[in-house]
Lab assay of single mutants.
Amino acid sequence: MEVRTIKVFTTVDNINLHTQVVDMSMTYGQQFGPTYLDGADVTKIKPHNSHEGKTFYVLPNDDTLRVEAFEYYHTTDPSFLGRYMSALNHTKKWKYPQVNGLTSIKWADNNCYLATALLTLQQIELKFNPPALQDAYYRARAGEAANFCALILAYCNKTVGELGDVRETMSYLFQHANLDSCKRVLNVVCKTCGQQQTTLKGVEAVMYMGTLSYEQFKKGVQIPCTCGKQATKYLVQQESPFVMMSAPPAQYELKHGTFTCASEYTGNYQCGHYKHITSKETLYCIDGALLTKSSEYKGPITDVFYKENSYTTTIK
């Protein structure tokens, strides 16, 4: 009895394709271990004539594949690729409408935090270190965002349907971005203890939790000093293409032309909904596939993004 075979390709990165001759009487799992086709788990399936010449994702289970996976995804987590594939199996079914010149995501599976993050990423200057993220990001900007969303979920250790947080998501993504040249110098002034300067680099240099107003941050924000008295913390120097200011959701007025974009969060910790506000020729609110415009805006804002380049204080 002759062994019926077909020729397929296996890959971990969709760049390096490895030619395989597979036995049609055995499952993919018996031949390769966990195997995925377009995100779908085909591990328990036997090869079919229609699979001839198709590319299958496999887990990096030998040295060659491990090197290829690390170079593309910059992670050695053995569960990463499987999590990416199972997320992709959902995100490829989502709709990605162009809204006001940006790629958004039609609401499904509690994905409003991903839509808000995706919209924000198209408006701030950011370059990702893992080629996987950078490639998928370019495709997302062009309207094909399924891979990018699935990668975000995998890097953030999230599953489809789980509630997510924009600030946490951005923080994970910033860790995989090139923020080497970003720098922030802060000064804390206390009447009792004097003053202390701190220099922050990388992710810490672009994120701040405690106030939404970048102007206020430049002037000074009140913080408790270690001595128990009130101290003032203010920005001395900022070198970065953008800054992200966050605070627990509270009524906040966004003035046209003073910011790049913002995240609105309605609801409580267990259950809520994100919308995205962007400042173009007027203010726009993007909620999944829905767009509304207004000249002014007041609502429960939790993150505001500002364009920056270089700032030095005039406070002496």
Rank of each mutant, 00 (worst) to 15 (best):
Y72A: 13
V99M: 15
P300S: 10
M245L: 07
G272E: 02
T199A: 09
S246G: 10
A136D: 03
D41I: 12
W107Q: 05
I45S: 13
P47R: 04
C227M: 00
Y265Q: 03
E215Y: 03
R167L: 01
L133S: 03
K275D: 00
G143Q: 02
L212N: 04
V8I: 13
C112A: 04
N89D: 12
Y172A: 09
V42N: 10
V166N: 00
N187G: 10
S79F: 13
Y138H: 12
Y284E: 14
E68N: 02
T278S: 12
G257I: 01
C261Y: 00
T258N: 10
L17I: 14
H176M: 08
L81Y: 10
F242M: 02
G143V: 03
C182Y: 08
L291G: 12
D165H: 06
T260L: 15
T10E: 08
P97E: 14
A117F: 03
G143L: 05
V3Y: 13
I152W: 03
L151T: 03
S294L: 15
I223G: 14
L118V: 06
D135R: 08
K93H: 13
C261K: 02
K46Q: 12
Y274P: 00
T120S: 10
A146R: 05
P300Q: 11
I15G: 07
I15V: 15
E2P: 11
C261R: 04
H48D: 15
R139Q: 11
G267A: 13
N309A: 14
T91S: 05
Q238F: 03
T120V: 13
G101F: 10
T169L: 08
N187C: 12
T91N: 03
C190Y: 01
E239K: 10
K219G: 06
L290Q: 13
E52W: 10
K201N: 11
E52L: 10
T266V: 09
V3E: 14
N178C: 09
C149V: 13
P60L: 04
Q238K: 02
L290M: 13
W107L: 05
F305L: 07
M244E: 06
I6Y: 09
L212K: 00
T292Y: 09
R4P: 11
H74F: 00
I124H: 04
N309E: 15
K183E: 03
A108D: 09
G101Y: 05
R83D: 05
C182E: 02
M24Y: 07
A247Q: 05
V206F: 03
L200C: 11
N89Y: 12
Q175A: 12
K293I: 10
E308G: 07
S25L: 12
L114S: 00
G39S: 14
L88S: 04
Q270M: 12
K44W: 13
A289L: 07
H256I: 14
S240P: 04
A154I: 05
L119W: 02
T120R: 01
V12I: 10
I15D: 08
E253P: 09
F174V: 01
P47K: 03
E281H: 05
F9G: 05
I315G: 15
H18D: 10
K233Q: 01
E253Y: 05
G53S: 11
L81P: 09
P78F: 10
N147Y: 07
K46V: 14
G299W: 00
T313H: 14
V42T: 08
K219P: 01
Q270L: 14
Q196K: 14
M85T: 05
E71I: 07
P97I: 11
A150R: 03
G143C: 05
F174E: 05
D135G: 08
V160Q: 03
L283N: 05
L119G: 05
V67N: 15
C193S: 03
K201Y: 15
Y113K: 06
K95N: 14
C182K: 02
C271Q: 10
L163N: 06
F217I: 14
V3F: 13
S171D: 07
G228V: 00
K219S: 12
T91L: 05
T226R: 14
F305A: 02
L59P: 08
Y57M: 11
P78A: 12
Y28A: 04
T199S: 07
T302M: 00
V166I: 01
K229T: 11
W107K: 04
Q237A: 11
P249T: 07
K7H: 13
M24E: 11
S295G: 10
P248Q: 11
L212S: 06
K183N: 05
Y269N: 15
G53L: 11
F80H: 02
L65W: 08
A247T: 08
V203R: 12
P224D: 12
C156G: 05
Q237F: 14
L17T: 11
D109S: 04
P241M: 01
I152S: 09
T266W: 05
G53N: 09
Q122N: 07
S104I: 12
T232D: 03
Q251L: 15
P47M: 03
T260D: 15
Q123H: 08
L153I: 06
M209R: 15
V42M: 12
T302C: 06
S25K: 15
T55S: 12
T258L: 07
Y311L: 13
P130L: 03
S50Y: 13
Y57W: 14
T302Y: 03
C227I: 03
Q122T: 03
K275V: 09
C271M: 15
M245Q: 02
T5R: 13
G288E: 13
N111W: 00
G53T: 10
T260Y: 03
V188S: 07
Q123V: 06
